[in-house]
Each structure stands twice: as structure tokens, then as C-alpha cells.
Amino acid sequence: MNSSSIPNNNTLRSNTPKHFTWVLVMCVILLGASVVASLAFGSRPVRFDELIDGLFRPDVDSFGANIVRKRVSRTVFSLFCGAALGVSGALMQAVTRNPLADPSILGVNTGASLFVVCGIAFLNITSASQYIWLALAGAAITAVFVFGIGSMGRGGATPIKLVLAGAAVSAALSSLVTAIMIPRSYVMDQFRFWQVGSVGSATWSAIGTFIPFLIVGVIIAFMTAPALNALALGDDVATGLGVRTGTLRFIAALAGVLLCGAATALAGPIGFIGLLSTHVVRLILGPDLRFVIPMSAIAGAIILTVSDVGGRLMGNPGELEVGVVTAFIGAPILIILAMRSKVRSL
């Protein structure tokens, strides 16, 4: 693509939404509040002094301080997974020009689930690093398959065709997952907790495995954002601006699958985060992806972390898995969005 499709610094400043700074400040405050809530609330709430001891006084060995330290990895993992899913949703909506595109709606999560359960059943995999590569492969193959089906027929890949193709593929793959698990009880025992979607089993080792995928995916997202803005004007206009639309879609979709697949491998198929975060950001700041992508990352981190806290409080003294909470919130919102937008393309 040529330089005409990429805004310079003066253009970026002139196109910055007037209320962007205030929105950013509010999101940072909400992010901080969600982190504090994640550390403080659960089956055993901690006092303020225990929170301080757990975070800043490693020599203190009280029960409350140890609980806080155990929750730190879970909180960090929630933030990273939420950010990855938020950016993935923004990229998938931009690539497909579909306001309802989301890893869970397009069947990408289910594809990752199928490959993970196949790995458990036939390859005896158990580690997070092995989950990631299988989940990435499943997510990528499913994304290509759904887009291929949605592109068939008259009119190409329209928003409604992509959503229907994703729903159909997701249903078929879910049936395959069930067929593999039913005769293998050991697979069902290992897979069922992962399938619901949870950040409760987060470890620093898993976070370390996840970080490289998060960094690469986010960097690609930022690099492709200006060209994706041109793509939103239509393929013909984007081509006239020097954008190689096919290459751009491939690279941006690859980043989306990378982020979604890695998050799904470690946390399970958590749905609706990408859809919710990106829609909220677009509603407030507009469609410019230079702002939508970073703010979707922050919004996704907030939504997932708050949902995890909500699941802990609602399920007390146990906990309700975060995948259940996000589905409970996201499903009615998806219906409302579909009714109001009438599934228009971006």
C-alpha cells in the first residue's frame, strides 16, 4: 500500500475524537477498579490491609495476603485474555465488514475446541503450550472455512451469510466434539472444565506462554489499522488508495485468529467479549480503527475481569465460570444489536 492510505501525525491529531481523552481516562479508572475488585472479592473477601500486605509486603505470611497473591495471576490472565479477545473482535469485524463478527459467532472458538479435544483424545496432550498450537490450527482452519462458505453465491460474503455460516459450522463442530467425548470419559473429565471457559486455573507459566502471541497479534493489529480504515470504504476505494485488499485481509485475519486461538487454548471458548467491547467502543468513539483497536483491548480486559468477579460473587461459596457469565450477558445484547442494526455491513 502507498503512503496515501496511511495518515500522518497531523492527520491523526486532527481526526482524534474530541472526547477521546476523557473516555481513555474513564476506561483506565474502570480498569483499575476491576483489578482491585478481582484481587479483593471472591469466596473469601479480603480486607484493605490484607490487600496491601499481599501486594507490597512479601514478608507477611497471613492467610489473606496469600489469597491476594494467588489472585494476582488470575487477574493478570483475565486482563490479557480480555484484551486479546477485544482486539480479535475488532479485527474480525473490520476484515469481514460485519458488525456482528466475533470469534464465538463465526465458529472460531468451536474450531479451536475441536482440535483441543482431538489432541486430548488421540494425542494425549496435557500442557498449555500444546493446547495453544492445536487451538490456533483449529481456529485458523475454521475461520477460512466459514469465510469460504459465506463468500459463496450471489453477493459474496455479506454480513448475514457470514453469521449463518458461522452458526452452522459451529453447530456441526460442536456435534463432533460431543461425539469424540461421549465414549471417552477421561476426555470428558479433562475437557469439560476447559470447554465452559474459565480463568480460574491461570498460572504464571500459562501467562508466559500467552504473552508472545498477544504481543505479535496486537502489533499486527496496530500496523494494519490505517489500511483497515480504507477497507471500510469498500474494496474499490481501498485498492485506489494503494491497499492490497487480499493481503490485508489475510494479515489482519491471521492476527485475529492468533489472538483468539491463544486465548481460547488457555482459558477455553469464552464468547461475546470481542462483540461487546468493540460495539461499545464504536458507539462512543466512532469507527476509526486507530482508536477502536486499543480501546477494544481495554474494554475487553474490563469486561472479562468484571465478569470473572461477578461469577465468583454469584457462585459464592464456589464460583460461576466466566464463560457462563459472558454468555448470559452477551446473548441478549447480541439479539438487541441484530434487531437494531438489521445486520448492516460496516
Rank of each mutant, 00 (worst) to 15 (best):
S4R: 02
S4P: 02
N9W: 03
N9M: 07
L12C: 00
S14C: 01
K18P: 05
W22N: 13
L30D: 14
S34D: 07
V36D: 08
L39I: 05
G42C: 09
R44Q: 13
P45S: 09
R47N: 13
R47G: 15
L51I: 05
I52P: 00
D53T: 00
L55W: 02
P58G: 01
D59E: 14
D61Q: 14
T75L: 04
T75Y: 00
V76R: 06
F80D: 13
F80M: 15
C81S: 12
A84K: 02
A84F: 01
M92G: 08
L100H: 08
A101E: 10
S113A: 15
G119L: 07
I120A: 10
I120C: 14
F122N: 12
S127W: 03
S129D: 06
Q130W: 00
Q130H: 05
Y131S: 08
A137P: 11
F145G: 05
I149C: 09
S151P: 07
G155I: 09
I160M: 14
V163I: 14
L164Q: 11
G166D: 11
A168H: 11
S175E: 10
T178W: 02
I182D: 00
P183V: 07
Y186F: 12
D189L: 11
Q190I: 04
Q190S: 15
G197K: 09
S198V: 02
A202R: 11
W204T: 14
I219T: 02
M223Y: 03
M223W: 03
T224N: 02
T224M: 14
A230V: 08
D235Q: 03
G240N: 13
T245Q: 08
T247W: 09
L248I: 07
R249I: 05
F250N: 14
A253M: 15
L254N: 10
A255N: 10
A255G: 12
V257E: 04
G261S: 01
T264H: 03
A267G: 09
R282W: 04
L285D: 04
P287M: 01
L289G: 12
I293V: 15
A299K: 07
A299Q: 11
V306E: 13
R312K: 15
L313Q: 09
G318L: 06
E319H: 09
E321C: 08
V322D: 10
A327V: 12
I329M: 13
I329T: 14
G330I: 05
I335N: 09
I336H: 06
A338Q: 10
M339P: 03
M339D: 03
